[in-house]
Nucleic acid binder design. Structure first.
Lengths: 239, 239
DNA sequence: GTCTATACGAAGATAGAC
DNA sequence: GTCTATCTTCGTATAGAC
């Protein structure tokens, strides 16, 4: 309860969840869960090492620093998400027709959800962790995340631009970044909570994912932004 | 460069920007700038006190804690934003007709921009600070921010619901929270940067604000979200 | 009342023993 | 390769100067 170690001498028995995984893997699992739960800055390295049943210095040995640990967790998780996104995009492109905006948005948003399903027990941890990292404002973390998603980003931007030929590339980029940011906020739980009135919470996740897809699809279909000075304002009103 | 103080004995000459403001005001100014630049967790209390030319303990005296300092900065800034938002909303409601979604979104989004203009020199600091706080994921900070905006939130939700009678309240709430979150990401610079190819940066701010208004207005006008199982997907496609 | 000097415990990082 | 011991920095708390 007190300090750096919980079981130093004897064979540790309580909550030995990831049985004989390596120290490295146990550190990654613990960091993913705690970073997702409490955030990066709020999670102490000592809390991670206690949960992973390892020493504080093991983090520095395996990952160099706390940020190195974060980078490793991001890489491990994003590898799966990136693969899934590219696979879905290929699937759409080889289906005979140009992918629509709605299809692209749906594929992008649901990738996170599918990853969560496949991750089983650790699913919600992964979702919260990804959401947090996705909309992080720390420049260092943003760079690290950006480097991880850039291969997929280019492909999606191409496909979105092809589906929205009337929009200037700058505007497609702006809306794409809005999608990434909003998905991050959604996955970190920012858009979900705060309405305590209702009872049904079980289906909220799926419903909100669909709401997000609806919202984003309509956002992409907005007309090109007009001049900053006194725009017509009624433009999207007609439909 | 080393420790808690930069000029202990003589009259401080370098960068004495807010000349004879009280220690309390100088602490608020410094915190607003540094929290906006680096984030709350990444900014050390000592960095704030060095910039404000005050002692570390002054923070605890005036604000009780680091979080108390954050609360004070939020309150000082949001008082202006809340007032402006309520004023604009009243202006719309007394203009004879029901405010449209576009008008409500525009009033909400541009409030931040106007505050920035009025703040003059400190404008960009204020914008970044507000943006960061708005989309913060730390529950404590979210609670504190939520308490600050709740009076305005209710009024805007009412007006939006009246403008979108075909949408269920839950969905209006979801889209409102999306607007708040996205505005936060935008104001903290998350949606703006990263495309280094272009040259014009001067007009980017205004342009992106208009893009955000366009995007959000269209997002609010999306049809109600259908059942999670295999939605038609073409719904917003027709317009 | 305001503010400064200073001390304390906790956290991240590092060096070197094993 | 792994862990113990130690260093620096952080937020907070206390005592007293003005």
């Amino acid at each position: 309860m007190n300090e750096t170690r919980s079981a130093a001498s004897g064979p540790r028995s309580p909550a030995d969840q990831s049985r004989h995984a390596s120290t490295r893997e146990r550190l990654l699992d613990a960091a993913e869960r705690l970073f997702g739960e409490q955030g990066f800055a709020a999670t102490s390295l000592r809390a991670v090492t206690v949960e992973a049943d390892a020493n504080v210095a093991a983090v520095n040995y395996h990952f160099g620093s706390k940020e190195g640990l974060l980078r490793a967790v991001v890489e491990r998780t994003m590898a799966a998400v990136n693969g899934e996104r590219l696979r879905l995009l290929e699937e759409l492109r080889t289906s005979g027709h140009q992918p629509t905006v709605g299809e692209l948005v749906r594929a992008f948003v649901l990738t996170g959800a599918r990853l969560v399903e496949r991750s089983g027990e650790r699913g919600t941890d992964v979702a919260r962790f990804l959401g947090r990292v996705m909309s992080e404002r720390d420049p260092a973390i943003r760079r690290l995340f950006g480097a991880e998603v850039s291969p997929v980003e280019g492909r999606y931007l191409e496909a979105l631009q092809a589906a929205l030929p009337q929009l200037p590339p700058d505007e497609v980029g702006f809306r794409y970044r809005s999608m990434v940011g909003l998905l991050g906020l959604y996955q970190s739980g920012v858009l979900t909570d705060l309405h305590p009135g209702r009872a049904a919470v079980a289906t909220t996740a799926n419903t909100d994912a669909e709401r997000l897809i609806t919202l984003l699809t309509s956002a992409f279909h907005a007309p090109p932004t007009t001049d900053p000075v006194a725009p017509a304002e009624g433009a999207p009103e007609h439909c």
